[in-house]
């Protein structure tokens, strides 16, 4: 095979991986703190993208500067996604904090179906064209045919968000509290940590990264629809599990591995089976190394 084809697949895998990383962070953090697979996480990403689309379209009429529109749209989309995530947690998850994991998971599935159909009914079930929010950079001119400006922005913003998040969780007071809650919720509560606040903060972080991911991927794909979040959400969850759920570097690594698997799988084997590669990979990992690539093997407490 030609080397340039390999590079192209590598770069497209990198882009995919970056998006999965932005999404899987939310999964991994929420799972770390309340041991819930937040099935509706993909919907937050979709809602972020939809909000951004609506705001850009409206602002475009006011004749505002394109860059200002982009910033405003991203800012509001993040704000709204966070609002949805926190509200969702209050309604669907908080009352179930002491019930079984199965109940909470079913509630999350319910929330996911609800949000998808809420957008479908109030907006549309058709695909909508998504405006390019990211300008073409002049210096990317020579590599544009294999790596566009949008792809560059996606990769760079993923890295930046990742670094900020890691630093935050490692060193800030809230980050330390988050880790404490993840370790032992009751003990954390007894030492004066406001659990509800920490859980909300976790959901906010997750939704912010998801919204950024949603906007970036939508401007990369140039179209959106009410169910883009579902598959993306499941894939991101796959990535989180691959890396070892609950671990932030694991989620990032898992995302890139998944991105490359899909991209090389579609490139060299068959493009019809893109999702099959991801799922098969997940099944193999879970069977042979259930704790994931970077997860710690934990004995179930008896």
């Amino acid at each position: 095979m030609k080397f340039s084809y390999f590079i192209e697949l590598f770069l497209s895998g990198l882009t995919k991986g970056s998006i999965y990383a932005l999404l899987s962070l939310g999964y991994t953090m929420v799972y770390g703190i309340i041991q819930l697979i937040n099935f509706a996480h993909g919907e937050i990403y979709m809602i972020g993208a939809f909000t951004a689309l609506i705001i850009t379209t409206i602002l475009a009429y006011t004749g505002m500067n394109a860059l200002a529109i982009a910033f405003l749209a991203i800012f509001l989309a993040i704000l709204y996604s966070a609002g949805y995530a926190v509200t969702m947690e209050r309604i669907a998850y908080k009352p179930l904090r002491n019930s079984t994991r199965l109940s909470a998971l079913i509630s999350a599935i319910g929330m996911s179906i609800f949000l998808q159909n809420y957008v479908r009914l109030l907006q549309t079930s058709d695909f909508l064209r998504f405006p390019p929010l990211i300008p073409e950079f002049g210096f990317m001119r020579y590599v544009e045919h294999i790596f566009t400006s949008t792809q560059l922005v996606i990769f760079v913003s993923t890295c930046v968000i990742m670094i900020i998040l890691t630093i935050f969780i490692k060193f800030s007071k809230t980050g330390k509290a988050m880790r404490a809650v993840a370790q032992d919720r009751v003990m954390a509560m007894l030492s004066g940590i406001n659990i509800n606040r920490i859980i909300s903060v976790t959901f906010i972080f997750g939704s912010v990264t998801a919204a950024v991911g949603g906007i970036l991927i939508s401007s990369y794909n140039a179209q959106i629809n009410f169910n883009i979040g579902f598959m993306a959400g499941i894939k991101a969850f796959v990535a989180a599990v691959l890396g070892g759920i609950g671990s932030i570097p694991g989620a990032v690594l898992g995302s890139f591995v998944l991105g490359w698997t899909e991209s090389f799988g579609t490139g060299y084997i068959s493009s019809d089976y893109e999702d099959v590669f991801a799922f098969l990979f997940l099944i193999l990992i879970l069977i042979f190394k259930p704790e994931g690539l970077l997860g710690r093997s934990t004995k179930q407490k008896v």
């Binding site: 697979i37 796959v238 019809d272 999702d275 997940l282 259930p290």
Partner: peptide, 28 residues
């Protein structure tokens, strides 16, 4: 046989994956 050793929520995701694989294979 292979998946039933998995914990509850992992099992949910893996069965979902299997379901989707079957559909995609039938489609293609």
């Amino acid at each position: 046989f292979p998946v039933l050793r998995l914990r509850g929520d992992y099992l949910a995701i893996v069965t979902l994956a299997f379901g989707e694989i079957v559909r995609i294979v039938l489609e293609n």
